[in-house]
Each structure stands twice: as structure tokens, then as C-alpha cells.
């Protein structure tokens, strides 16, 4: 069930990328899809009634959350930020050249 909610979030992002025409909306769609993938990573590693993966001086290690997907998601978030900034730089350049954010109008204006 919780996987299905995560999948719905991903599909919202895909719908926004495919259907919308504004470039800023397309960037927002990619960000939402990336959120869904990060969430899926963390959900895969969750253990019921587990502790977070930080040791403390006087407690035994048992029933701890899987920390490997968390490390991968941590890397993924920073790469997503770099990706977003490159996309925004490209969008600003496109606006400077064509004076619009609309994808279909940019296609007509070529040449």
C-alpha cells in the first residue's frame, strides 16, 4: 500500500514532465519524480520499530534501520540539486534568446 502511494507521486512527476508546456513546470516535474525515488530508497530500508543508525555509548545494537539506502539517498539529493541548477541555467538562457518559456512556441520560432 505504501509503495503504491510512492508510485503515485512518481507518476505525478512523469505526468508533469510529459504534459506541461512551460519549462519551469517541467523542471518542477523532474524535482517531484526525484523526491519519489528518494522516498522509495528510504522506505525500502525501514524496519518496524527500529532505531536510527547512530550508536550511543550504553546501548546494544539490535533492531536497527538499514543504513545503506540512506547513504545512497544522501548522495542522490546533492546530485539532484546540481542537476536542478543546470536546468535552471539552461532555461534562463532559452528565455533570453526566445523571450518565452513555452516549448511549442520555441519550436515554431526556430531559424
Amino acid at each position: 500500500m505504501i509503495y503504491l502511494l510512492c508510485l503515485i507521486l512518481f507518476c505525478l512527476g512523469i505526468y508533469c514532465i510529459v504534459r506541461k508546456r512551460n519549462i519551469i513546470k517541467i523542471i518542477i516535474g523532474t524535482i517531484i519524480a526525484q523526491y519519489a525515488v528518494n522516498l522509495f530508497f528510504i522506505i525500502l530500508g525501514y524496519r518496524r520499530e527500529g532505531r536510527s543508525a547512530i550508536l550511543s555509548p550504553n546501548a546494544r545494537i539490535e533492531n536497527m534501520v538499514d543504513m545503506l539506502p540512506q547513504a545512497l539517498a544522501l548522495t542522490s539529493i546533492i546530485i539532484g540539486l546540481a542537476f536542478t541548477s543546470i536546468l535552471i541555467a539552461l532555461a534562463l538562457r532559452i528565455y533570453e534568446k526566445y523571450k518565452t518559456f513555452d516549448v511549442t512556441k520555441i519550436k515554431e520560432l526556430q531559424g
Partner: peptide
Amino acid sequence: LKAPDVAITQLIV
């Protein structure tokens, strides 16, 4: 979901 590192990173980013 017991992932404090990822929570802080997500908030700041």
C-alpha cells in the same frame, strides 16, 4: 522513517 541525516539534507537543499 528514522533517517535523520537525510531529513536534515532534504530540508536544507
